[in-house]
Simulated scan of single mutants.
Amino acid sequence: MISARAYAAATAKSPLAPFELSRRDPGPRDVLIDISYCGICHSDLHCARDEWGGQPFPCVPGHEIAGVVSAVGSAVTKFKVGDRVGVGCMVDSCGECAACTAGLEQHCERGATWTYGGSNFYRPHDPGTGHTFGGYSTAITVVENFVVRIPDALPLDAAAPMLCAGITTYSPLKRFGAGPGKRVGVVGLGGLGHMAVKIAHAMGAHVTVITTSPNKAGPARELGADAVLVSSDRAAMKAAGSSLDLIVDTVSAVHDMDLYMGLLGLEGALVLVGLPPEKLEVSAFTLTGARRIFTGSNIGGIAETQEMLDFCAAHGVQAEIEKIPAQQINEAYERLLKGDVKYRFVIDSATLRT
């Protein structure tokens, strides 16, 4: 066993605090990673406070992991000691179902093993409580097929959030053909939204940011947006009706779906990547009137995640981050609730070792 230092929530009502855990020694197909950085996703906050229900405790969040390989198993062929690598939202799947064989491991029919809070185990796993512990820690052991290579052109700290925020937005942009001649809208300009803007711009699309905050117009354009719509300006929203081909909706709160769907032209698609806890409503006439599509997307498969990293490295795209010591995680959570971050907190894992 390998001892690791971490930060964990003991209960849904507890602040995160120092925690000791054990990682498994690398098996034949395992990669042991010294974690350098871990991004803070809004999902981490939801889980640490059990806002979605069913979260096992103690909870060590973190699924935006970047680090360096420190050991490999005897049968590992993809990585060697010293490689720069990342781990995203999942660390295993059955590998046999239709979804897994199609490269959509996140939709494994038997259930993917999530990086933290996961209990669907298909191979040997870390000793402990019966569920996985995430990346707010100094080390992690992961089967090699769920590790991705971080290109040298991407700094490890800025690459960490891309293991969730990057792939979550890249996947629907690619799926719906964002590129030259395509008009793409991005709802929200937070951790997910800023990556959607950067990636869509790099793909060559015309990008419009749709926000509730007029003061985000300048930052949106700095990130690569061509236009900004303020959703509270109903006249502007009406004038922009049927002007977009694709909308990536990153908002994790209830909002007027018909208002945003109305921005889509014929056979346009709105892809939900935010995770509002409440149900969303959309009028049937909004959908049928122009054959519009209302759909969702959940991260991406391992091969697509690697593709995203390679694309971003080639196009100079990386996350905008604020690095923090582990001792400021609880403060970062409170700031995250207020939207007080541009655009992703990243934990410096070296601070866990002091």
Rank of each mutant, 00 (worst) to 15 (best):
S243E: 07
A17I: 09
E105R: 08
E222Q: 14
S70V: 14
T77R: 15
L173W: 02
L229H: 06
N145Y: 06
L259S: 07
V186C: 05
E51L: 15
Q318A: 11
A205R: 04
E109W: 04
A220I: 06
P276R: 14
D157N: 10
M203D: 05
L32N: 00
A153C: 08
A319R: 02
R149L: 14
L223F: 13
A269I: 07
V87W: 06
G39V: 11
T351E: 10
L246W: 00
G88A: 10
W114G: 01
G262P: 04
N145K: 08
V254I: 15
P219D: 09
D30P: 09
Y333H: 10
D249Y: 03
C100P: 03
K13A: 15
D30N: 09
C47Q: 13
K182H: 03
R234L: 11
A159L: 06
A303K: 13
G53I: 10
D92A: 09
F79T: 02
E64S: 02
S252L: 10
G39Y: 03
C100D: 05
D25R: 09
A236K: 06
G67T: 00
R221M: 13
L337D: 09
C164A: 07
K13C: 04
G111A: 11
A326Q: 03
P61L: 14
F285W: 08
A178V: 04
A220M: 08
G82H: 08
L287R: 00
A314I: 02
G301L: 05
P180I: 13
T115K: 14
S283L: 05
H125F: 10
D249H: 06
D226S: 12
D44Y: 09
V254D: 14
G274H: 08
P214G: 05
F121P: 00
L173S: 03
R234C: 04
V207H: 06
F79W: 10
I150F: 02
A102N: 13
G130M: 12
V209F: 03
N330C: 06
V91Y: 05
G188Q: 00
L104K: 04
G296W: 07
G82A: 10
A205V: 07
T211D: 12
Y343L: 08
E334N: 10
P15Y: 14
Y7M: 15
R292G: 00
S36M: 07
A12P: 02
E144K: 03
F311V: 11
L32E: 13
Y343E: 08
V230E: 06
A165Q: 02
D83C: 10
A303C: 05
P276D: 11
H201P: 00
A205S: 13
S242Y: 11
